[in-house]
Amino acid sequence: MTSNVLILCTHNSARSVLGEAMLNHWAAKLGKNVRAFSAGSAPGGDLNPFAVEVLTNVGIDVSGYRSKSWDEFAGKDAPSMRVVITVCDNAAAETCPYWPGSPVKVHWGYADPSDARGGDDGKRIAFELTRQAIGYRMLQLLALPFETMSDADLQQALTVISGS
């Protein structure tokens, strides 16, 4: 059975998209039955061009990615999530909708690379470093034996990965 993971950030244009893309990329490369989705509480409508750039630079096709509302994943016809990860502090502080299946929730916060100093070059560096950091955590997530873990064990393992 596929383990679905929903990655949330307020605008669903940068960090959550990086998480979705990196988790799907690594899951495919490693042959893991894990599928990532991303969404936001107030989606911006467009993907951040720096997020698209750093993903494209490492060979990840982003043509199917879009900024979308978390409401798409709260309905009865939505895929059942095993895990919900917030990647920005704003989304972590918001009241989330009810998620079908009562998934395990964890916060893995990252600074907003859109706020980086140094103009476009500074933003490119910040986005690449954020992509790498998120990608590393996604590799740690994929090392977990989802199929055999209880929700409590999964919660504990995800909290350890968060560094909290």
Rank of each mutant, 00 (worst) to 15 (best):
A152Q: 12
R124E: 01
D121Y: 00
V17G: 03
A39K: 14
A133G: 09
S150H: 11
T95E: 04
R117G: 12
R35N: 13
N90R: 14
S13W: 11
L139M: 10
S41V: 09
T148A: 13
V84T: 01
R117A: 14
M149T: 03
H11K: 05
R82Q: 09
W99T: 11
G122W: 02
K68P: 07
T159M: 08
P103T: 02
A14W: 02
G64F: 11
A14F: 08
N24L: 15
V62G: 06
K68Y: 05
P100V: 01
P145D: 14
A126W: 00
K32L: 06
G45N: 04
P43T: 04
T159R: 15
S13A: 15
V62I: 15
S80K: 14
E20P: 14
F50N: 09
V84E: 01
S63R: 12
I134R: 11
A74W: 10
L144H: 15
I85A: 00
K123S: 05
D112C: 10
S63Q: 12
M149V: 04
A92Y: 05
C96K: 09
Q132V: 11
E147A: 15
M1K: 15
N90I: 12
A14H: 07
V34G: 13
T56V: 00
W108T: 01
S114M: 03
A21R: 08
N48T: 02
R35T: 15
S41K: 08
M81A: 00
V17L: 12
G109M: 08
G101H: 02
L141H: 13
N33D: 15
P103I: 07
T148K: 14
C9P: 02
E128Q: 09
F50A: 03
V54Q: 06
L139E: 11
Q140D: 11
W70D: 01
F73Y: 15
T56S: 13
E128L: 11
G59R: 06
T10Y: 03
V160L: 10
A74N: 10
Q140E: 15
E53K: 14
N57W: 05
P97T: 09
S13E: 12
C96P: 04
L47N: 03
T148Q: 10
A92I: 01
A91S: 11
L23E: 04
A27D: 09
P100F: 06
K32T: 03
A36H: 00
T56W: 03
R124N: 06
F37V: 08
P100T: 00
I125Q: 08
A143F: 03
S164K: 14
I125E: 07
A133C: 04
Q140L: 15
I161S: 02
R82N: 07
F50P: 02
L158V: 15
F73G: 01
A152Y: 11
D115W: 08
S80V: 14
T56L: 01
R124W: 05
V83E: 00
N48C: 02
T86S: 11
C9Y: 05
E20D: 10
V62N: 10
R137T: 08
S69Q: 01
V104E: 01
